[in-house]
Amino acid sequence: MNKSALLIAASAAVLLAAPAQAQTQPAAPPVTHGAPLTGICILSLDGAIGSSTVGKYVQTRLQQISQQVQTELTAEQTVLQNEAKALDAQKASLDQGSFDQKNASLQVRANALQRKAQIRERELQATQQKALGRVGQELEPVIRGSYQQARCSLLIQRDAVILANPAMDITPQVITGLNAKITQFSFDRERLDQAAPAAAAQPARRP
């Protein structure tokens, strides 16, 4: 994976795992460390993103957008369910042709709602990827700057290390640098249902 893809993957991991991480964890026993190794630094991408102001903002905003989608789909589903119940109650008073016609109309709308739900799911995925890509872009130069400031010769992901002297960890510096650079940015749900008709309307290119 390239650096941007790695940062996005780490961002996604920490944001999606945030509710689980919020649970209280038992305190680890104290450890006596040896002297820090000169030139070797450690960084927790998850910790840097999850503890940063912009990382928390992105998580909250993604949750808001997801809730908006859920509210939209639930409202339409409720309308269809109520109409289906009403039609079922009228079944005895309707002739078979009228009942079949109304039932077929409801089925068409139910299928359309299912397609919309699938589009919204892809939109949420695209929104998350775009937002995390922005965080990754902002984070890369901060990591490089912290690496150089700490005079590192080797930077290791903390997840790949069982134990290490905290003096070798540049995560706090990265968090401080990212907070100083950006705290939030505006983004909304990606609209794939609008992009598709626009793309289809474009004339085909000649070979």
Rank of each mutant, 00 (worst) to 15 (best):
G136R: 03
A198E: 13
A201Y: 02
E190S: 13
I42L: 08
Q68D: 08
A28E: 14
K130W: 09
T60S: 14
S11V: 01
A12G: 04
Q128T: 12
Q148H: 10
Q128R: 14
R191F: 00
Q118K: 10
A86D: 13
L80R: 04
D46Q: 13
R115H: 11
A204Y: 01
P141R: 05
L15R: 08
L139S: 09
S51P: 00
T38Y: 08
A201Q: 13
R158Q: 13
G39M: 03
I40S: 08
S4H: 12
V142S: 06
T171C: 01
M1Q: 09
L155R: 01
R61W: 07
L62F: 07
S98Q: 14
G133R: 06
A20W: 00
L132Y: 12
Q77L: 09
L37V: 15
G55C: 03
Q137T: 15
G34R: 06
I175S: 05
G34H: 07
I42A: 11
D46I: 01
S98H: 12
T32C: 00
D159Q: 14
R109K: 15
K130C: 01
Q114V: 10
V108F: 03
Q67V: 09
L16H: 11
Q107G: 02
K85E: 12
A167Y: 03
L155C: 05
L45S: 09
S11Y: 06
D100M: 10
V142T: 11
Q137H: 14
N111L: 10
I8F: 03
Q64L: 15
Q118S: 11
I65V: 10
P26D: 00
Y57I: 03
R122M: 05
R189W: 07
L132C: 13
S11Q: 04
G47D: 06
P207Q: 11
G133L: 06
S44Q: 11
T60K: 15
A150P: 00
E190A: 13
T60C: 01
G47K: 06
V161T: 04
L45G: 11
I8P: 04
L139A: 11
R205H: 06
E83Q: 13
K85Y: 06
Q157F: 09
A18E: 10
Q70E: 14
S153W: 03
N82A: 14
R134M: 11
Q23I: 02
G34D: 09
P203K: 10
K85D: 12
I170D: 05
A17R: 12
A27H: 09
R158N: 05
L178P: 05
A117N: 01
L155W: 07
Q96A: 15
R134G: 06
R61E: 15
A22F: 00
A201C: 04
V174K: 02
A13L: 11
A20C: 00
Q96P: 00
L192G: 02
C41I: 05
A195W: 02
Q63T: 15
S44K: 09
T78R: 09
R144K: 15
A17C: 01
P26T: 02
Q184C: 02
T74S: 14
F187H: 07
E138G: 02
N165Q: 05
N103C: 01
I156D: 00
L6C: 10
R120A: 10
P207A: 08
G50L: 02
G55S: 03
